[in-house]
Design a binder for these strands. Structure first.
Lengths: 222, 222
DNA sequence: AAATAATTGTTAATAAAATAACATTGTTAT
DNA sequence: ATAACAATGTTATTTTATTAACAATTATTT
């Protein structure tokens, strides 16, 4: 019996934080640090040291007392947990501003996770390469996804095309979808779906700014 | 005693969902619907009807039995809660692909929340207008923010400039920050900060795709 | 007119996440 | 050598968020 199933009940939030810890660790490593304390990681991520230690406990990693955690070891362990051994291929569907932003942002950052194809319907874009990522015609989506074994797609098409695009991707055998359009999409339960809406995020910021402003007014008018 | 303080202890998740409910409601309204059931909202957002009803209970809104919720009323109520009466002005700092994507994405969507300025250091961009949003030199950030009363900034600069940009924005009197760079930033407690990292999100999707794949293997090898 | 079904609103229960508490253990200082 | 300190690792507690349960009510069907 292998040990790989050990991590299948990690809290969702822990998964997200592990990714962030790794990013912080890679940065520290590149600056020549070899060890790091929980409170250092915590302060980078604006969380508490206890949270960090608890997460590391959950993945079974132990540091050294008064010396902290070995950065290289921890990076490797996090990689074993969240990365896929063979690597996962990703496609961007919709090579507009957001699609291109994601490619630039991502290129070469994670070798186990690489964007290898972009799709668009605009003939001016098809055939070009952006940051090493070729742009194909959206009509060839299924073909390329199957041929290349692409497992994840990021949807950055105009909102009105979101659900049709999603359907095509599911039909092409995609395993995970990340939807950046403001239009919620439906997928079968065997496809992992994550949706992110920038308007909601901005409205949330606006709400808390409003609340802070109201609080201040209350204080000054007492 | 006014009633506006009533909503200052709504759960964070409820705030985010209210924004999403409103979006769904606006869509339904534009299609000529006048009322909607909790399960309809729920299915658009991939959540449960109970969750919807509970959120609406928290904001004190009542529907009609067997008829559902009045869409217009609910849109107005959500607006009263999350929007700021006078409106809030937003700036985009960094007019690269992501900055431009946000502007296109957002333009004219919410009249109480509008992006009215962009900043960049690239002379080719300064002086241009994108989707009605003028791009100013980053050196004028403080001046414009103060003059226009901009309260929220979205940071879409290259990661290496993130923290300096944040410091300048805080010094300029910004109240809320939305950081889209992969570099966590520090702000004083009186500034509301929200950070979003696309790599983390994608890695999370990759993790769950990996888990699903492993599960399937387990099943087929029993 | 009675029974059934559909829906809301609310309380109660459960689950998930975060935080606190604290025992343990090396390290440094006295 | 001892005391004080600074860190980890883990259990317990609290808080936050979600889900379940169900009473109440109205519309629809028989």
């Amino acid at each position: 019996m292998e040990d790989r199933g050990t991590f299948d009940n990690l809290p969702h939030k822990t998964i997200a934080r592990l990714s962030q810890y790794r990013r912080a660790l890679l940065l520290c490593l590149s600056r020549g640090k070899s060890h790091i304390f929980s409170h250092e990681i915590a302060s980078i991520q604006h969380i508490t040291p206890v949270q960090v230690r608890r997460d590391l406990m959950l993945i079974g990693y132990s540091g050294t007392l008064r010396k902290g955690y070995n950065i290289k070891e921890l990076i490797n362990l996090i990689g074993n947990i969240i990365d896929s051994e063979e690597g996962i291929k990703v496609a961007i569907v919709g090579m507009g501003n957001l699609g291109r932003a994601l490619i630039n942002y991502f290129s070469g950052k994670r070798h186990k996770l690489s964007i290898i194809a972009g799709f668009d319907t605009n003939p001016d874009k098809i055939g070009n390469t952006m940051n090493g990522v070729p742009c194909y015609s959206a009509t060839r989506m299924r073909e390329i996804i199957e041929k290349e074994g692409i497992q994840i797609a990021i949807i950055t098409v105009p909102a009105e095309n979101a659900s049709q695009t999603a359907n095509e991707l599911v039909a092409a055998g995609i395993k995970g979808l990340l939807n950046y359009t403001p239009k919620p999409i439906d997928v079968p339960e065997y496809v992992y779906l994550e949706e992110y809406d920038m308007i909601t995020t901005l409205e949330k910021v606006a709400f808390y700014v409003k609340m802070k402003t109201l609080e201040e007014e209350d204080i000054t008018t007492i």
